[in-house]
Design a binder for these strands. Structure first.
Length: 639
RNA sequence: GCCGACGUGGCUCAAUUGGCAGAGCAGCUGACUUGUAAUCAGCAGGUUAUCGGUUCGACUCCGAUCGUCGGCUCCA
């Protein structure tokens, strides 16, 4: 009998006879681990618990407590759901794919009947029965040919397509009860292992994510090892929805959208304060970073857009109009405008890098179904900049921009995720030029030692980009900052500069945005702060609350002292009780309330109430003014 | 754009099987003169998203359009 050596993650070694399963080893280590084991990882490859060990291996036991374990758990839940759907809707349900995702899982189905939200409880009930039946997940393997034959027999056209795209000669299937599915695995030992799950919603999804393919019906669900964890998750979702910027935006009267302008947001006075504060901060930082600001037209001749390549590559997203019988387009991007500013005169290499910033209002025709509050709109202000430079300045400039983004995001306390997007299908320019640009971006990220994910084929049509992603209240990611390197526009527009040799040369360009779009960034901020903006951003910074009418005059005097100092203060002059007015300010997330009555009038003080800390006692007005001014200047995040 | 759900005063929600559209909050008026999260009373506010159909009768049923929400796709 052959003996094998099993090395565990802690480095310890154990000896077993060949054929011992992962589960046996787990039980040998401890009976609790044995029971908790749902899969194994053998030499880095995930396997089922009944996988027999035939050689010396590195083994780790997977339980639901690990990330990998949870993925297996949720993926198995997807299979159970698919089984339930087949039981309910019959054999003509065709299966597509059913992966685990962050926070849950989904499965895509093709069936004639429409699954609606009401059907979900029916499917859940069937899933509960399948769990009750405690069916074993049994894996088996077929040759590619056998697999194709089998799948064609049962008319699983999507699975056939998947196998056809596989390069492996052996493919694996899993069976639980009457249900079989092509799957790489591994899975839970049996359906009874699934404890807490819930189906969340149904949605349409194109097969393989392409709108040219048929639309399938996708059911989203989530699953947790314990009922309590599921409840905590659902509760967290409910809480997160309270932070939704669309809800808070309405409650705090920051912005609105109208049926008369779908996707084109209206800023209310309070929303405008936030936008302007962001812009002030932005200008301040850009002056420090040696940027100049320009402004370019919203509407420019179609010929310009043909030259830039937008007409060929971006037309579906653009709005067109006619002026004096000539075609014009509303700008979807600011670059051609900036380029025209550049081209308006000669440039010397001595000027470089030229950092030309623009708060440009761009319009893009987004699909109606894609619109989302302030996060995805059809008109937005980009905090854009175009940097014209020498090729040898690329790396330093990219590093400068990344540092600037990091500095700005840190003021808000944002965590971000970085992606490097490479050449898309509809790109202009040669592979060679793209490789050069992509390497420059990658190099900058590596120099700064930033983690990033490569997003193949997601670059702009004129160049690769580094994107900065932020998460909204429900964990959905939105692209905000972006840095795009471009060798092509300078070519197309025949940009040049006079070098030290007196000859004309071609400059290189960076397109970049830090906030990305003011609208999206404001949406992110609302959710990030749940409406309780730091003082520097708060639309109203101070509410002066007179106790009774006779204190009104003093209240207005206090207000004036503050507004004269540039502080956004107002008096709640309604003839209501103090408690009522305080509540009103609290609900509106106003950072400071100043209560003024007889005591304060006599002493020339104000009683300070901070929205979170409550009553701070009374201090003289000038001291309060100093305190809040400092907080504003420092842009304290006070989360 | 595609799939599904939804659309009732400014906001949050009611309205038996199709049978007189109602409440709270906000607003306005008046009274109260109030000390750290909601004083009381009164008033006003609606072609039930829009258009069409079925019906003696439609917020309710059917169809179309618009918009919103959750996804897909796309993207800042």
């Amino acid at each position: 009998m052959k003996e094998i050596k099993v090395i565990l993650p802690d480095g310890s070694e154990r000896r077993y006879r060949a054929g011992t399963t992962v589960k046996d080893v787990a039980f040998d280590i401890g009976s609790r681990l044995g029971k908790a084991a749902i899969a194994g990882k053998v030499d880095g490859k995930l396997v089922d618990v009944d996988y027999p060990l035939e050689n010396d291996v590195q083994l780790s036991i997977i339980t639901v407590d690990s990330e990998e374990g949870l993925e297996i758990y949720r993926h198995s839940a997807a299979h159970i759901m698919a089984q339930a759907v087949k039981r309910i809707y019959g054999k003509d349900v065709k299966l597509a794919i059913g992966p685990s995702i962050e926070d849950g899982f989904y499965y895509d189905f093709d069936l004639a009947e429409r699954i609606t939200t009401e059907d979900l409880s029916k499917i859940e009930a069937e899933m509960a029965r399948i769990i009750e039946e405690d069916l074993k997940f049994k894996g088996y393997q077929l040759s590619r040919e056998e697999a194709l034959g089998k799948l064609k027999d049962v008319d699983e056209i999507y699975k056939v397509e998947l196998v056809e795209d596989l390069s492996d000669e052996i493919v694996s299937f899993y069976q639980q009860g009457e249900f079989e599915d092509l799957c790489r695995g591994p899975h839970l030992p049996s359906t009874g292992y699934l404890k807490a799950f819930k189906l969340m919603n149904v949605a349409g999804a194109y097969w393989r994510g392409s709108e040219n393919n048929p639309m399938l019906q996708r059911i989203y669900g989530t699953a947790f090892p314990k009922q309590k964890e599921l409840e905590v998750y659902l509760h967290r979702l409910e809480e997160a929805k309270k932070r939704d910027h669309r809800k808070i935006g309405k409650e705090l009267d920051l912005f609105s959208v109208s049926e008369y302008a779908p996707g084109f947001p209206f800023y209310h006075p309070k929303g405008m304060v936030i936008k302007n504060e962001l812009i002030d901060f932005w200008r301040q930082e850009h002056r420090k970073a040696s940027y100049q600001e320009v402004g370019t037209p919203l509407i420019m001749n179609e010929e310009l857009w043909k030259r830039s390549g937008h007409y060929d590559n971006y037309k579906e997203n653009m709005y067109f109009t006619e002026i004096d019988d000539q075609g014009f387009a509303v700008k979807p991007m600011n670059c051609p405008g900036a380029i025209l500013v550049y081209k308006s005169r000669m440039h010397s290499y001595r000027e470089f890098p030229i950092r030309m910033a623009e708060l440009g209002l761009v319009h893009r025709h987004e699909l109606s179904g894609a619109l989302h509050g302030m996060m995805r709109v059809r008109a937005f202000t980009q905090d854009d900049a175009h940097i014209f430079m020498l090729p040898e300045q690329i790396k330093d400039e990219i590093i400068n921009v990344i540092k600037l983004i990091d500095r700005i995001y840190s003021v808000f306390g944002f965590q971000y995720r970085v992606e490097l997007s490479t050449k898309p299908e509809n790109a202009m320019g040669s592979d060679e030029i793209w490789d050069k640009a992509t390497d420059a971006l990658r190099n900058a990220l590596e120099v700064l030692d930033l983690d990033f994910k490569v997003n193949e084929g997601d670059g702009a049509f004129y160049g690769p980009k580094i994107d900065f992603h932020l998460k909204d209240c429900l964990g959905r990611e939105w692209q905000c900052g972006t840095i795009q390197l471009d060798f092509l526009m300078p070519e197309r527009f025949d940009l040049n500069y006079i070098g030290a040799d007196g000859e004309e040369h071609r400059p290189v360009m960076i397109h970049r945005a830090l906030y990305g779009s003011l609208e999206r960034f404001i949406g992110m901020l609302i959710e990030h702060y749940a409406g309780a903006f730091p003082v520097w951003l708060a639309p109203i910074q101070v509410e002066v609350i007179p106790v009774v009418e006779k204190h009104l005059e003093y209240a207005f005097a206090v207000e004036k002292q503050l507004t004269d100092a540039g502080i956004r203060a107002e008096v709640d002059s309604r003839s209501e009780k103090v408690g009522y007015k305080i509540r009103s300010s609290q609900v509106n997330q106003i950072p400071y309330m100043l209560i003024v009555g007889d005591k304060e009038m006599e002493k020339g003080t104000v009683s300070v109430r901070e929205r979170r800390e409550g009553d701070l006692g009374d201090i003289i007005i000038s001291d309060f003014k100093e305190r809040i001014e400092r907080e504003i200047v420092e842009r304290n995040n006070n989360l």
